[in-house]
């Protein structure tokens, strides 16, 4: 199994009060096993819609999406999802929160306790098992939600702007932490973000989406060393790649404006 995520010309049209909204239009993408791919694009371009389609909860209208060779039509045990909000359940303590997926999947909790304790340790949350989410900072909560997504050892991680709600400093810390986890666990990651700097720092490959309806604009192979030193974000080569991707997005927007089809009013369609 080489290609873990295969997206073939998927489209998504939402019905809205103002008529149909074309969120994604024939977008394609391939992610190899163990690869780290980022998807960027202007707000409202359908990045989140793409990820939701891959969860199996909001199916695409057209095209096909496969995870590990199977067509996606329902939530899968081999996929972990991390959202912008940590979405922890406030009435469960941290340990109960990270074991929540195990309960849902009706697995034996005792078999996983050791594993989640190791994971909590790897995100520096040992000692917080009995705390409630409200007692933790935003960054800590997001670390818990990463552990929750990893608890059942999925092969694939789908991440939707996971650090978008955090302050700039914590966000950078989390990016580095995520790279560490990726290196250790060798998961296949699809990471949606609107921050190109973040995408370039993290990913092997960056897919650029056009403004709505989101379709393939370009793919950039990020030719930066692994493991990535934190200082890489100060280097010329890094800036050049970021600038190139930014130019691409600006060009896409301008092209749509010339054609008069650009919808600057980006509103959320996934609920």
């Amino acid at each position: 199994m080489d290609e873990v995520i295969v997206v073939e010309k998927v489209s998504k049209v939402y019905a809205s009060e103002r008529g149909p909204v074309h969120a994604i239009d024939r977008f394609s993408m391939k992610v190899k096993e163990g690869d780290f791919v980022a998807i960027v694009g202007p707000s409202g371009c359908g990045k989140t819609t793409l990820l939701w389609g891959l969860t199996g909860l909001h199916p695409f209208n057209g095209g096909k999406a496969y995870i590990l060779g199977e067509e996606v039509d329902k939530p899968r045990k081999d996929v972990g999802i991390i959202f912008q909000q940590a979405n922890l359940l406030p009435w469960r303590n941290i340990l109960q929160n990270v074991l929540f997926p195990i309960e849902i999947m009706k697995e034996n909790i005792a078999d996983y306790e050791e594993r989640v304790k190791d994971l909590l340790d790897s995100v520096e949350l040992t000692g917080f098992e009995n705390h409630y989410p409200r007692e933790l900072s935003g960054g800590m909560q997001q670390r818990v939600s990463i552990v929750r997504a990893l608890s059942y050892d999925p092969k694939v991680l789908l991440m939707d702007e996971p650090f978008g709600a955090l302050d700039a400093y914590t966000r950078d810390e989390m990016d580095t932490l995520l790279l560490g986890i990726w290196k250790k666990t060798k998961k296949t990651i699809a990471f949606v973000t609107h921050r190109i700097e973040e995408a370039v720092y993290l990913a092997n490959k960056v897919y650029v989406m056009t403004p709505r309806p989101g379709t393939n604009s370009a793919v950039f192979d990020i030719d930066l060393p692994r493991p990535r030193p934190e200082g890489i974000t100060m280097e010329q080569k890094y800036f050049e790649i970021v600038a190139e991707i930014k130019k691409r997005i600006v060009k896409d927007v301008e092209k749509q404006k010339e054609e008069g089809v650009y919808q600057s009013q980006a509103y959320s369609t996934v609920t």
């Binding site: 939530p75 045990k77 959202f83 979405n87 359940l89 849902i104 609920t271």
Partner: peptide, 26 residues
Amino acid sequence: PLVYLRAASTLGESKLGMRLRVMFPA
């Protein structure tokens, strides 16, 4: 809150589990 329902549904939570583990505790 929608976010709790979402967190549970992406994990494949059942209809019964959604009520017992999410809606009533919330």
